[in-house]
Amino acid sequence: MDVQRAVEIFESKDTYKVKLEGEPVWIEHVDQQNGMATVQVGSRPTNTQTVKVDRLEEGE
């Protein structure tokens, strides 16, 4: 995924399926300058990771 698409998903009122290495995630923040995103993995709000945006995949 590119940074612009990650920002679009993050700012959208719609829900999009996003995955990190096959696991569903929620985008919580996008750092456009560094190409990084903070994501919540699964349903636990405390389980967050900061990863390169290009590791994220938009699912069906």
Rank of each mutant, 00 (worst) to 15 (best):
W26Y: 10
I27L: 11
G22H: 10
A37H: 01
S43C: 08
Q40I: 10
E28W: 08
D31K: 04
M1R: 11
V7N: 03
E57K: 15
T46Y: 08
G42S: 02
V18P: 03
L20C: 06
V51M: 08
T50V: 10
L20T: 04
M1A: 15
V30S: 03
R5S: 04
H29I: 04
Q33V: 06
R44Q: 12
R55E: 06
L20V: 08
S43Y: 08
G22P: 03
T48M: 07
P45K: 09
V53F: 01
V7T: 07
K13W: 08
V25K: 01
E28I: 13
Q33F: 02
I9E: 04
E60Y: 13
S12Y: 07
T50W: 02
V51E: 02
Q40Y: 01
K19T: 12
K13D: 13
T38W: 00
V3E: 05
N34D: 12
K19E: 09
Q4H: 09
T48L: 05
E58R: 11
K17Q: 12
R44C: 09
K52P: 13
G35V: 03
Q40H: 06
E58V: 14
E21K: 15
G35K: 00
M1C: 12
E60H: 11
I27V: 11
K13T: 11
V25P: 00
T46Q: 09
Q32G: 09
Q32I: 09
Q32P: 05
L56S: 06
T38P: 00
P24C: 05
I27R: 02
S43A: 12
P45A: 10
D31F: 12
V51I: 14
E60R: 13
G42A: 06
H29M: 11
T38A: 06
Q40L: 02
E21I: 06
K19V: 08
I27K: 06
V41W: 00
V18M: 05
M36G: 03
D31P: 01
D14G: 14
V25E: 00
G59P: 04
E11M: 15
V30H: 02
W26T: 15
E60F: 13
Q40V: 09
P24D: 07
T50Q: 12
L56Q: 03
M36I: 07
D2N: 13
D31M: 04
N34Y: 09
G35Y: 02
D14V: 14
V41R: 04
I27F: 02
P45S: 11
S12E: 07
G35Q: 01
P45M: 08
E8Q: 12
V7A: 05
G35F: 01
